[in-house]
């Protein structure tokens, strides 16, 4: 199969370019895109990409696969090629600076994550054992806590492309709602006040690119809707 990979080494190359590789998949099996990347790396050891757990848990190998963001390790090659397994085009996640080849600089993405204070804040004295939740309160965190911060959603979002320094982005907002919805957190008002400006939340136009690409099947658009409703209830 033909594998076209985005190449850019700022120390050597003046501009990025696409490099083609012919890869023979043993037994014509429906392997994962990450396996293909490893085969390319065997041919050409200068190729740089991130990977770690190779099972969709660490979130390191987010790449644009035939134009759609996804995790290379859990995307079988039949999916982006619609069963034909003929051609793969691999590019770095869009919208963030490229460090080298498929490796991007995720500083802005992490800065937005940091901004929403992704930890429990509780001003009541700590109980002797732990802060308890009812099963119903715990159930509210389902579909929120599973985010692995792979950045597939935020880098698929045009609002994040245009304002990555101001718009928190779908991933950060999903996490923001995870802490707003947590019964053990007491700083809801402060968290909402931080989000009520015209950029942090309200740049979301609800186009749902984030939902379309999330490798974990999460729904950041719905979480953003919940945050908007909380702001409405608080301020209207």
């Amino acid at each position: 199969m033909l594998v076209s990979v985005y190449r850019y080494n700022p120390e050597k190359d003046e501009a990025p370019y696409m490099q083609d590789y012919e890869i023979t998949v043993p037994g014509n099996k429906d392997v994962m895109v990450l396996d293909i990347l490893h085969m390319v790396k065997e041919q050409d050891p200068t190729l740089a990409f991130r990977r770690s757990c190779r099972e969709g848990v660490c979130g390191s190998d987010g790449v644009s696969i035939n134009g759609k963001n996804g995790l290379a390790c859990i995307t079988p090659i039949s999916e982006p090629t619609k069963g034909k397994m003929d051609k793969l085009v691999l590019r770095p996640l869009p919208g963030l600076p490229v460090i080298r080849d498929l490796v991007i600089d995720m500083s802005l993405f992490y800065k937005q994550y940091e901004k929403i204070k992704p930890y429990l804040m509780n001003d009541k004295p700590a109980p002797a054992i732990e802060r308890l939740q009812t099963p119903e309160e715990r159930a509210k965190l389902d579909g929120l806590y599973e985010c692995i911060l792979c950045a597939c959603c935020s880098t698929a979002c045009p609002s994040f492309w245009w304002n990555p320094d101001k718009f928190v982005g779908p991933s950060g907002l999903l996490q923001a709602y995870r802490f707003l919805a947590d019964s053990r957190d007491t700083s809801t008002a402060d968290r909402l006040a931080e989000l009520s400006d015209p950029f942090s939340v309200f740049r979301c136009r609800g186009i749902m690119n984030c939902v379309n690409v999330c490798p974990k099947g999460l729904n950041p658009t719905r979480a953003i809707g919940h945050i908007r409703n909380m702001l409405l209830n608080q301020q209207v």
Binding site: E194, D197, P198, S200, V201, R228, L232, Q235
Partner: peptide
């Protein structure tokens, strides 16, 4: 909180409601 002086209502929620 991102500051802005040129939007209609100083708050994202206000603009959204308007």
């Amino acid at each position: 909180m991102v500051a802005s002086v040129t939007n209609l209502g100083r708050s994202g929620l206000y603009d959204w409601v308007i």
